[in-house]
Structures are given as C-alpha cells and as structure tokens.
Design a protein around this nucleic acid. Sequence first.
DNA 1: CATGAATGAGTTTTCATTCAT
DNA 2: AATGAATGAAAACTCATTCAT
Lengths: 194, 194, 194, 194
Amino acid sequence: MPRTPEENERIRQATIEKIRAAAMELFMKQGYYATSISDIAKHARFSKGLLYNYYKGKEELLSEMVKDRIGEVAEVMSEAFSLETPKEQLTSIVNGAIDNIHKNPEVHRFYLHLQTQPEADVDLIKYSRLIIEENARLFELQCKIFERMGESEPRRRSLYFSSVLQGIMLMIATYPQKFPIEELKQQIIKEFCK
Amino acid sequence: MPRTPEENERIRQATIEKIRAAAMELFMKQGYYATSISDIAKHARFSKGLLYNYYKGKEELLSEMVKDRIGEVAEVMSEAFSLETPKEQLTSIVNGAIDNIHKNPEVHRFYLHLQTQPEADVDLIKYSRLIIEENARLFELQCKIFERMGESEPRRRSLYFSSVLQGIMLMIATYPQKFPIEELKQQIIKEFCK
Amino acid sequence: MPRTPEENERIRQATIEKIRAAAMELFMKQGYYATSISDIAKHARFSKGLLYNYYKGKEELLSEMVKDRIGEVAEVMSEAFSLETPKEQLTSIVNGAIDNIHKNPEVHRFYLHLQTQPEADVDLIKYSRLIIEENARLFELQCKIFERMGESEPRRRSLYFSSVLQGIMLMIATYPQKFPIEELKQQIIKEFCK
Amino acid sequence: MPRTPEENERIRQATIEKIRAAAMELFMKQGYYATSISDIAKHARFSKGLLYNYYKGKEELLSEMVKDRIGEVAEVMSEAFSLETPKEQLTSIVNGAIDNIHKNPEVHRFYLHLQTQPEADVDLIKYSRLIIEENARLFELQCKIFERMGESEPRRRSLYFSSVLQGIMLMIATYPQKFPIEELKQQIIKEFCK
DNA sequence: CATGAATGAGTTTTCATTCAT
DNA sequence: AATGAATGAAAACTCATTCAT
C-alpha cells in the first residue's frame, strides 16, 4: 500500500531539510569548493544520488542558502522599520546585526567570504552579486532613517554608519579574540543617534 | 659557452617572478580554486612542469603571495611609524590604507576573501591565519599610537579605529559604486585625531 | 468487497499493456539507451516500482517488444501463404511489407536499428539475433514460393528478392523524402512474378 | 632537455591515432552506448585523462569517425566518377560497395546502426543526419550516371538501383551466412547496365 | 496492488602532479 | 633548465533497481 501524498510530502520536506542543513554546515565549515557532494551525503548519512532528487546540484544548494540568507537579513531590517522613531530603528539595526554576528560569527564570515568572491569566478560571482545588491537595497532604506533624523547629508551619514557597522562585524567574524560587544554597540548608537 | 652562475641566477629569478606574477593575477581575478595550474602556465607562457621546478605546487604559490602581502602591509605601517607625531602616524595609516584600496580594490578584496576563509578548509586556513595574525601584530603597534595620543582606553580606541577603517575598506573593495574617498579619509582623521 | 479474480486479471493485463505501450513508444522515439525507466513511468503515469511487478527490468520490456514484432511479421507471411498461387503470395508479401513501412516507417527503423546492433553489445545482441533468425526462417518459407514458380535457382532468386525488398524498406524508413510507393511495388512484383 | 616540437607532434599524432583506433574498434564491437571511456582507455592501455587531452569527450570521437567515414564513401564515388563510360562507373560503384561490405561487414553494420538511430535521440541523431545527407548528395551524382545512360526516368532508375544495392549491403552486413558475392554483383551490373 | 524515496554502482570529466626526454 | 604528454585520484552526476509503507 503506497504512502499517502501527505506522508510523502512530509518525508520529502524532512529530507530536503536534512540535505540543506548538512550542506550549510559543511559549506560554512569548509567552504564551497572544499566541500564535495560526497562529503555532504556522508555527513547527513544519505546516498549521493538522493541529493539529485531534490537539488539540481551543488550550486543550487548554495543558491538556496543565499536566498534564505537574504530573507533573514531583510527580516532584521523590516523588524527595525516596524519601530517608531529613527533612533529606535537605528538602535534595532545595530543590536540585531551585532548580536547575530556574535551568536554565529561563522555564518557572517561565510557570507563575507562569498561577497568577496573574485569577479571572474563565473560559478560563484552571481551569489556575490545577489548579496551585494540586496545590501545596496537595504542601504537605500537605511538612508531614509538618517533623513528622518534631520541629517544634512543623509546618504553620506548612512554610508559612514554602514562602514562602521560592517567594520565591526568583519572584526568580530574574523578575529578570534573577545570583543567588548556591548560597549561597541553603545558607542555606535551614541555616535549616530545624537 | 655556458652561462655564468650569476647569469643563471638572474634567469631563475626572472622565471620565478614571471610565474608568481601570473599566479597572482589569476588568483585575484578568478580565485584560488577556480584557477588551474594549466591556466597559470598558459597565461605566463611557460610549461606546467617548469612551475614545479620552482614551487612545490599550487599551494606554495599562494603562500608566497601571502608572505609578500604581509610584507607590503608591514611596510605601510613602518612608514607610518617613521613619522614624528601620533597624529601624523594615524593620518599616514588612513591615507596609505584607503589610497591603496582605492587604487587596487581587487587586491584587498582577494585578501579579504582569503581572510574570511572557513576555518575547516585545511588547505587554505593557514593563510587566513597568517593574515589575521599579522593584522593582530599590527594592531598592537597601533595601540601605541593611541597611547601616545593620551587616550584613556587606547586599546578600545584602537579597536574602534580599526573597525571603522576596515569597514570603509570593505565597502570600497566590495561595492561597485563611487565613494567619496577624500571626505571619508578626512572624517576618520578628524574623528580619531582630535 | 474484494475484486473477483477475473476482474483482477483484467486489471493486470491492462496495466501490463499500458506499460508496454509506453515503453514501445519511447524506445522507438528515443532508442533503448536514451530512454530511462523514469521516462517510461512518467509517460504512462505510473510509478517506477510498478514496472517491476510485471517486468524483470528494462531489458524484458525490449524482449517483449521483439517477441511481438516477430509475431506480427510472421502474421504477414502466413497471410501471404494462405493465398493460392505463388504470384498472389509474392504480391501479398510485397504489398504487406511496403504498406507497413509506409504507414509506420519509425517502427521498421527501430527494428532495423536493433537488427544492426553491434555483435558484442551483450545486453542487446540477443534481440538482434532473434530478429535475424526469424527473418532467416521466413526466408526458407519464401524460397518455397520461388520453387513453386519454377525458378531454376529458387534460393538465389529468393535472396535477390529479399535484398530488393529490404533495400526499399530501408530507404523508405531512413530517408525523409517521398517515395513513389505504388510504382516501386509494381516494379518489384513485375520483376519477380514474370 | 625538452623534446623537439616535431617529436611532440609525432607523439601526439600517434596517441590520437591509438585512441581513435581503440574507440572505433569498441564502438563497432559494442556500440556507442555500451562502450565507456574507461573501456576505451583500458583497451588501448592509456589513462582515462589522456583522452581528454585530445578529444572533448566521447561524442567527439564518434563525430570524427563519422567524418572519416563520409570521406571514405565519397572517395569510392569519386573513384567511380573518374572512369569514362556510365557503364564502367556503375560497375565500379557496385564492386566498390560490395567488396567493402564483404571485407568489413561490421563497419557497414555500424554505420547502418547509426543511420537508423531514432529521431529523438538528441545526442546521436546529428550523426545519423550527416550520413543520410551525404548519401542523398551522392544519390544526386548517381542520377547523372543514369541520365548519361539514356534512361527515360533516371531518378527513378537511380532510386531503384540504390535500393537494390543498399538491400544487398544490408543483407551481407547483417546475416551471418555466406552470400554468392560475385554472382550478386554480376546480376546487378547486368540488370542496370543493359 | 501500487508508490516513489532511497540506494549505489557506474559514468563522464577535471586537474594537480610526475617524468621521460 | 624546460617541456608537455601522461597519470590517476577524485569530483559531479545518472539511473536501473530495491524496499518500506
């Protein structure tokens, strides 16, 4: 007696999830190129062939990861935008970004790695571009916050703000040492919300 | 008539240099994994076999690049340290760093890419570590500048300074748009040299 | 209420037929190797597993096709043999063969393809052999017709007749152009029934 | 000391020839699909990788074979056309074709197999088409012979001639039995050169 | 009886490295 | 010192077949 379609769908989803989780874990741990399909299959204890029932190949796995990531980042931003004052919004962005990095530095590191992909790597540059474009989109939104704060040059201010935030995120994600997280957050918030 | 030993050595050095230049160019353009030994050999018009007379393999080429890079960065720092006042020193660091990025964003991008290498890529992580360690060493020197400036918390100030500088460098190296380079430099210098 | 055994048997037969029809269609369209079990299952809208309830595997599907084909060809011959005079018999063979090709050239093309299978394709050569042996058997019968016609060398005449007929069938099945079917039939009949 | 370019070229040509010969032998013996790159490499005692130094892949090997074949067939025709009278020309075609088949029936069998490739096998149909188109081209030339012989319907006569010849070739290439080669040749020649 | 998720052996292909010349 | 033909291990991917449900 065959499984019901619902049962099958449940199994499919569970498998997809298992594959994706294994791929994400290994891509983040070892990088895209250093991770083989065999590695992923072995790590999640399924056969190589099964992966191809659900994904066109290795690259599609990365593509899915990037799409998800873009969703997550947008989420953080839209949460911030649901708040009232520009000050609250900036505070939320800073806290959201830095807390995330602090909890999972290797995730941010991975996407930074992807974002800095050389321009001529034809396979991967599209994902770098996706991330960069999404960041550019979010930057435009961020400018609005500085407008509402009455900055005389909101784009410039927003750019400097992004640089500072990205810089701190880079440091946390890259250097193994402890960072005075809370103080850094306070400092940025103080500087840009005066 | 056989060549003199000096002549021979000169030829050797020229060949080594040619190989290294080709490798650097392609690693930067396409990335380490996406560049094959064949690509390098074809690009510099020598035989694949020759490469192995001078380098142990693909990885040693990267290793040499990283060593060189570390030297270059140290150079910028020691130039800064040859100046008198801490203010001049900081100004020199900011100008040196940002002008470099501005001139060759893809170089910085490449080393950022390397620096964000996932931890478990056994082949490449050592180079990421080398870069990070060198940066940490330079950071210690930088702290001295802030001490001399009479900062109450020189390490913290130095950390924030590094973050801002790294953030701007990341943005310039990653985003295709034009940045107001001079103004950003002025802004950092003003903020950290008051 | 369980189905009656007869009902069950009817359903079984219908399923077997559906599978075979789908396999035949795809084998003829794409060839044996270029057709996957998945293709067949998708095309006939049943599950891959079901196929294995009725057939041992992909090869048995081909085997069934070939058996059927041999039956069909024998049918044409025995129809011819039910006629009175050798002249009528030959005419019937020519008309039957050429009309068949003309109606479904791709069917003949497929079996020609199978018949010309290289000798050392261990999977498929047996089907090539089956077809060839059947043709040889029919050839023997055909010789009788030429004996009855009073040919001095009936085997030789029969061989030449077969060659001409096979040649025309090959041309019709292989070349896309229009052929003067009726005239060709007349010509053969005239030539061999004088 | 490196090999001279001439020496290298010699080695390359020898290797290419070795690969091609092995591929041809196995394609003919086992068929294209049933022959793997591994088979070819093992059979000619070189490494799998080497094949890719000289050919883009399996399909290019087939493509080369087909090109060569087309050249060979054209050769037979142009030899015939170098003769004086249409009668000599036809005789030459018949003798050339049948002697070739007789010497290497499996070669003709292989190309017949390719020529009868199902239309929807996207990988191989192009080679089938190449052969068919070449045959059509040669057919046009052949019509000229029948024109010169003063046939009232030269195309029709040429078509019938081709059918008979193709039929005999098919029989010889497909059936294991002995054929009265010389007599068949005489018979065709007599029939079409009266 | 029927399903389709899962398997794994087999395929094509790539590429860092070796080595005879 | 220099060449590039050759290797072979490892990669991505395919698909006939099995089996739990």
